[in-house]
């Protein structure tokens, strides 16, 4: 299923199994998870709700060490959090007592870096301008809309130029129009500030619009059930979502989700 000729794997997850300890015994969440992302790649992970997608992000961030199997970033086995990841969640978790600019600068206060204060602020301003938040640097998070908070959260995740950007349903709580706006912003950001990304989502259109590879996980305990590569078509526009190719990809993925949910036998044609 996985192409073996991929040498430049930045993220490489092999044969990962993990269980959570609960009052009623161990609860397996991941069982046979395989995932690799080449440098500069952007992988979307979809699957039935509660299948362990968020657990996957915690593994890549080093916040969780798997019971079995390996998570490697740049060939180094992850055994503890490393400062080379940026994270954004469905909840933008901006610090209410800081301005937007100070929020974006937060990672630089923790990650060792060579930027001077002025350089750091310049970089933060540039990122904010890139996502369309110029002029909002000195506002508080409470003065921003949900979509704007998410844009600021994205800047914070990128400020320290992380090797890996982890997005855990960052657009899930936004309305449809705002979400589509942010998809286009993501393409703009990726062109200006290249990153290697893992996107957790339950929106299939989002997955094929943003990612160059979509991975379908089975229901819990999650294993890698299906991988769909999306040929690079350059900067994508929303119109691309309404082409026959896009419709076909969506169909394939929808069928795979139904299989994962156990509603359709795997053999049935999509």
């Amino acid at each position: 299923m996985m192409p073996d000729d991929m040498i430049d794997k930045l993220i490489d997850i092999t044969a990962v199994r993990h269980s959570y300890r609960t009052a009623s015994g161990p609860l397996p969440v991941l069982d046979g998870l395989e995932l690799s992302v080449p440098e500069g790649g952007f992988v979307a992970v979809v699957g039935p709700s509660g299948c362990g997608k968020s657990t996957l992000t915690r593994l890549v961030a080093g916040l969780l060490i798997p019971d079995e199997g390996e998570v490697r970033v740049h060939g180094t086995r992850i055994t503890a959090p490393r400062s080379n990841v940026g994270m954004a969640f469905q909840n933008p978790v901006l610090l209410e007592w800081r301005t937007i600019l100070q929020n974006v600068l937060l990672p630089l206060e923790i990650v060792p870096n060579k930027l001077s204060r002025a350089e750091a602020r310049d970089r933060a301003r540039r990122l904010l301008a890139l996502v369309g938040l110029d002029g909002f640097e000195d506002k508080r998070p409470s003065e921003l809309s949900g979509g704007m908070k998410q844009r600021a959260s994205l800047c914070r995740a990128l400020i320290h130029q992380p090797e890996v950007l982890i997005l855990d349903e960052p657009f899930g709580a936004l309305d449809a129009f705002t979400r589509e706006d942010l998809w286009q912003t993501m393409h703009k950001v990726k062109a200006e500030e290249p990153f290697t990304g893992v996107l957790i989502t339950h929106d299939l259109r989002e997955s094929i619009f943003l990612a160059d590879r979509v991975v379908v996980l089975s229901s819990r305990p999650a294993r890698t059930q299906f991988v769909l590569d999306i040929p690079d078509t350059g900067l994508r526009t929303l119109d691309d979502l309404y082409t026959p190719e896009a419709a076909e990809r969506l169909n394939i993925l929808r069928h795979q989700i139904e299989v994962a949910q156990g509603r359709t036998p795997a053999g049935d044609a999509a």
């Binding site: 916040l63 959090p81 610090l95 209410e96 007592w97 937060l106 990650v111």
Partner: peptide, 29 residues
Amino acid sequence: LEPEYRDILRSLGASQATIFWKIALPKTL
């Protein structure tokens, strides 16, 4: 304190003390 607040800082390698001073304390004020 929402776990995401902790995760944001922990994923950057922040210590428990840093998490307390930067997030937990101000958020509790």
